[in-house]
Amino acid sequence: MTEPAAGQDAKPEPKALHAVPDATPVDLDAAFRDSHVQEVLDKLDRELIGLKPVKTRIREIAALLLVDRLRKGLGLTAGAPSLHMCFTGNPGTGKTTVAMRMGEILKRLGYVREGHLVTVTRDDLVGQYIGHTAPKTKEVLKKAMGGVLFIDEAYYLYKPENERDYGAESIEILLQVMENQREDLVVILAGYKDKMDRFFQSNPGMSSRIAHHIDFPDYAPDELVAIARLMLEEQQYCFSPDAERAFADYIVKRMKMPYFANARSVRNALDRARLRQANRLFARPSVKLIKKDLVTIEAEDILASRVFSDGVPDTETPKPSIL
């Protein structure tokens, strides 16, 4: 067997910078069209409300990768850009949702080969006893290769209060692979901003290997209403005009209460509205129902919430202590 070629593939054409005439035309539009990236970006725009900074960054990454591909076509090499990311933001701002899309986007752009998403937390990476962690972490890394490794609540990997914790060993292995096998997988860390910042402070190696720190902003009330409309549409329901106004009131009130979780609170509120709608239909058995009754959420289904009557959230875990 010849010596294994240690990652030393396609020798860069050393003089391409000068050998190819400066005036050589390049067709950026064609490359853009061929990648079908626009479809993915449009879909992202349609299916995710708001998230301006996130969408902008994804566009920028797409542009970088397309230009990179054109350069490669001319023999200009630059080495694979690092695309490891960190998503920070409050609960329910769409971090997990965007990570799932990332795989597909990066696949379309030819950055990853498969585009699948492997979601893990501390328990999947860190073992219970000496010698348990390394194989566990490597196993996960191997499964994620060709796609995206999503580490939710990444800060729990590092437990400074316990110096014999095996999390550090896992981080060590992650760092190595993030550095040496960029073309094999993309790592996305996610979590709440303050905890993530503290995690990076104690793990500067991790912070420096992450090229894109993306912050997910909280949604504005009108965005939350738009998200509600979208979610209902997916479930083949709709608001009556009154209900939509009621929901807008509801959201403004709910946002100021404890345990508000952005889009997830919207999803929970809608689930409860569906429950009330079904009960309302049952309470009036004599009335002849039509299809429209089955798909419409009425204002009363929203207004029955304790947010309006008592000024506290409906039982959304965990229970507020003011009860």
Partner: peptide
């Protein structure tokens, strides 16, 4: 033996470790 892998890179990694 490696189950549930999507991409050869993980297996090539083990081959190279073995080498």
């Amino acid at each position: 033996p490696m189950f549930d892998l999507k991409d050869p890179a993980g297996i090539l990694l083990e081959i190279n470790n073995c080498r």
